[in-house]
Design a protein around this nucleic acid. Structure first.
Lengths: 122, 122
DNA sequence: TTATCATATGAACAAATGATCATATATTGT
DNA sequence: ACAATATATGATCATTTGTTCATATGATAA
């Protein structure tokens, strides 16, 4: 569950609609929660990473195949995969010198699908 | 629906797993779609905007109240609301000199909720 | 061991981002 | 008309981001 601010003196500042502001402040996300949520969406906020995630939503792929698929250098893809790993959006397994990447969880597909929905004027 | 690339000569480049890469390329998002999806997520990828959206998910708010709630300047909030409008994440109605903002659609709440789910190790 | 291949990572740099300040627009009240 | 208020926007600037290049790591093959 998201926690609420517990400050008792939340409404010192003057503002137009004191009651509403005070209530809304009490219900506000904690800075840290907002930061983490934004962090996750920020990682989703790049076309290259969207392409990678979309490709991975179909099947497990190794780095060099991803590079070929999204038509970018191995280094660029590897950097992006690092970010995706950091946000727990993808996971990988090592098999010899290859690294096979896949989505970390099925709910990532849902997030992606909702993003697609949105642009399709959903 | 998302369209597929229709290039017939998609697999000229050499790569490790030709079949898979060829198939994956055929299923790949169009650049323009990936760009738009990323654009939407990018807008969600900022703590200030997450806070604004979260506050708006509870109730309609005017600009100066939002500024008080997220504890930022009116100008900064107005700039962010512009971005949120551009991404069709919020809408607003004018009432005299006030502008009352709200989420553009209920599915925005769902997107937000999924982001929250993710950080709560969902 | 040495060469090769798949992947990861650090440095560097151009481009994008977000807050602030000053100012513009538009509505209301006197 | 003039002042006050709510919001919007342009310019500026420090910070962040994403790619590239060079190189490191680590596994396999000769």
């Amino acid at each position: 569950m998201i926690q609420l601010h517990n400050d008792t003196d939340v409404c010192e500042e003057l503002c137009e609609h004191d009651q509403i502001v005070c209530l809304a402040k009490a219900e506000m996300l904690l800075d840290e929660d907002a930061r983490q949520i934004a962090e996750t969406f920020k990682i989703l906020g790049d076309p290259t990473r969207i392409k990678i995630l979309h490709a991975l939503s179909k099947r497990e792929l190794c780095v060099c195949d991803i590079a070929a698929i999204v038509d970018m250098g191995q280094s660029a893809v590897s950097h992006q995969l690092r970010l995706l790993r950091g946000a727990r959006l993808v996971k990988y397994r090592k098999e010899g010198k290859m690294a096979w990447y896949s989505l970390d969880d099925t709910h990532i597909s849902l997030l992606l699908a909702q993003g697609i929905e949105h642009i399709k004027h959903g």
